[in-house]
Computed example of a mutant assay.
Amino acid sequence: MTKGEETKQFIIERAAPIFNTKGIAATSMSDIMEATQLSKGSMYVHFENKDVLACAAVDYNMDLLQDKLGKVLEKSKSYKEKLLTYIDFFSDPNRPPVAGGCPILNFGTEVDDTNPIIRQKVLLVIKQAQQLLSEIIKKAIADEELKAELNPADFAIAVFAMLEGGHLMSRVSGHNDSMKAIVKTLKNLIEEYST
Results as ranks from 00 to 15, higher is better:
residue 82 K to Q: 08
residue 102 C to V: 06
residue 77 K to Y: 09
residue 117 I to D: 00
residue 147 K to P: 00
residue 150 L to N: 02
residue 107 F to W: 03
residue 65 L to P: 05
residue 76 S to E: 10
residue 67 D to F: 10
residue 101 G to H: 08
residue 43 M to E: 05
residue 136 I to L: 09
residue 98 V to Q: 05
residue 132 L to Q: 13
residue 95 R to E: 11
residue 143 D to I: 06
residue 122 V to M: 06
residue 187 K to H: 05
residue 37 Q to C: 09
residue 131 Q to K: 15
residue 128 Q to Y: 06
residue 29 M to K: 11
residue 11 I to S: 05
residue 88 D to S: 14
residue 16 A to H: 02
residue 108 G to L: 02
residue 13 E to N: 14
residue 86 Y to G: 03
residue 7 T to F: 04
residue 90 F to S: 00
residue 5 E to C: 04
residue 164 E to C: 06
residue 172 V to M: 09
residue 125 V to K: 15
residue 70 G to R: 13
residue 80 K to S: 03
residue 124 L to F: 14
residue 143 D to E: 14
residue 25 A to F: 08
residue 174 G to V: 15
residue 148 A to V: 15
residue 96 P to V: 04
residue 59 D to N: 12
residue 186 L to D: 02
residue 96 P to R: 03
residue 132 L to Y: 03
residue 20 N to W: 07
residue 188 N to C: 07
residue 31 D to T: 11
residue 171 R to M: 10
residue 21 T to W: 07
residue 118 I to Q: 00
residue 140 A to Q: 00
residue 119 R to K: 15
residue 137 I to V: 14
residue 37 Q to V: 10
residue 107 F to I: 01
residue 168 L to I: 12
residue 188 N to E: 13
residue 140 A to P: 01
residue 159 V to A: 02
residue 24 I to Q: 00
residue 63 D to L: 05
residue 138 K to D: 13
residue 39 S to Y: 08
residue 28 S to H: 08
residue 44 Y to C: 09
residue 165 G to E: 00
residue 21 T to K: 12
residue 141 I to R: 04
residue 28 S to D: 13
residue 98 V to A: 06
residue 131 Q to M: 14
residue 108 G to H: 09
residue 190 I to N: 01
residue 86 Y to M: 06
residue 98 V to N: 04
residue 170 S to L: 01
residue 23 G to Q: 10
residue 57 A to I: 00
residue 74 E to H: 12
residue 3 K to V: 13
residue 4 G to A: 13
residue 44 Y to L: 15
residue 85 T to C: 14
residue 86 Y to E: 03
residue 172 V to N: 04
residue 128 Q to K: 15
residue 78 S to R: 07
residue 22 K to C: 05
residue 6 E to P: 02
residue 1 M to Y: 12
residue 87 I to P: 02
residue 87 I to A: 01
residue 5 E to F: 12
residue 65 L to K: 04
residue 35 A to S: 13
residue 13 E to D: 14
residue 58 V to E: 01
residue 150 L to C: 04
residue 153 A to L: 06
residue 168 L to A: 14
residue 67 D to P: 05
residue 128 Q to D: 14
residue 116 P to V: 09
residue 130 Q to T: 14
residue 130 Q to R: 15
residue 65 L to Y: 10
residue 181 A to E: 03
residue 141 I to H: 03
residue 176 N to L: 07
residue 145 E to K: 12
residue 3 K to T: 12
residue 180 K to N: 07
residue 114 T to C: 10
residue 146 L to N: 02
residue 32 I to R: 05
residue 167 H to K: 07
residue 25 A to W: 10
residue 101 G to E: 06
residue 9 Q to N: 13
residue 123 L to E: 07
